[in-house]
Write a protein that binds this DNA or RNA. Structure first.
Ligand SMILES: [Mn+2]
Ligand SMILES: [Mn+2]
Ligand SMILES: [Zn+2]
Ligand SMILES: [Zn+2]
Lengths: 144, 144
DNA sequence: GTAGTTATTGAGATTCAGTATCAATTGAGA
DNA sequence: TCTCAATTGATACTGAATCTCAATAACTAC
């Protein structure tokens, strides 16, 4: 038994909690994201939602990132990707072949930061960590 | 006594080793980078080098990244930054106020990856870690 | 040193992601 | 239902990065 996936209602509630209006377009964006099972780009999402303007898709993605409903991450070449966020504080592994995103918590990461706190001059205000993988499915499909 | 800074000759040698021609423009780019004491953007470098075309600056930066002479990293908002690379394998702390970049080695980071190797389905092919800080100088200059 | 080959260059066009504008629309509370 | 600020979308715009291609210059061989 694994963690229950975030439903689209959580996302809508998060937008409401932020004092935002629940519009048809925002529902469409949330519903489309809910169908995703891998990372996706803003542009892909936009062209898949014919009823919703491009600018609105970008605006909504930004709102959802701010509301911690989705995460914005990046491939090795910098291409921005989005993925639903299902775990409180976490990092990501991204399959560079198929875009599959896994979230992971690892206390060791936090230990790194604590150790840096001593080494580094100044105040730590944030961090980013992404692990790039070739997922099992992709390893198999390339014939071993 | 700290590690000797990489000189511009190392960079030139790296380009030679890659079988590339040593041109006046590439010397200018390398020399300008050598003067930097913080992270910089490609565009800033380009507009500072009047004698060198913009496209050439971008091309040279890419070559230097491939040659491990400089590192390409990113601010929290995704803005690409470059910085000279002086340590073998490392990660970065970036001051989001002044752009100062520190490189650090931390064996704990590598330990994180080893632990992930067990958790994660698939093969790890790379990773990225950036720590965002407010450096001591910036903390002070903002009046505590 | 000269000549030949070919990598490199620069100006400008082009692409692409993302943002700004602003008049028209609409959600949500009163 | 009424009201009005929030939201939307078409489109223009920005800025980073890449592409094109004729002109140039770095290396190599002689
Ligand atoms: Mn996430
Ligand atoms: Mn570096
Ligand atoms: Zn995969
Ligand atoms: Zn600073």
């Amino acid at each position: 038994m694994t963690t229950a996936p975030a439903s689209q209602f959580d996302a809508i509630a998060a937008l409401e909690d932020a004092g935002l209006r629940i519009t048809g377009q925002r529902r469409q964006v949330v519903a489309a994201i809910d169908r995703k099972d891998a990372g996706f780009t803003a542009e892909a999402l936009a062209s898949e939602l014919d009823g919703v303007g491009r600018a609105t898709v970008y605006r909504t993605l930004k709102l959802l990132v701010e509301a911690d409903v989705i995460c914005k991450l990046a491939l090795p070449d910098g291409t921005p990707m989005y993925s639903p966020s299902r775990v409180e504080h976490h990092h990501h592994s991204v399959c560079t072949s198929c875009g599959a995103v896994e979230e992971f918590r690892d206390s060791t990461v936090e230990r790194v930061l604590r150790s840096l706190n001593r080494e580094i001059e100044g105040e730590i205000i944030g961090h980013r960590m992404e692990v790039f993988i070739r997922c099992r499915a992709c390893l198999i499909s390339t014939d071993e």
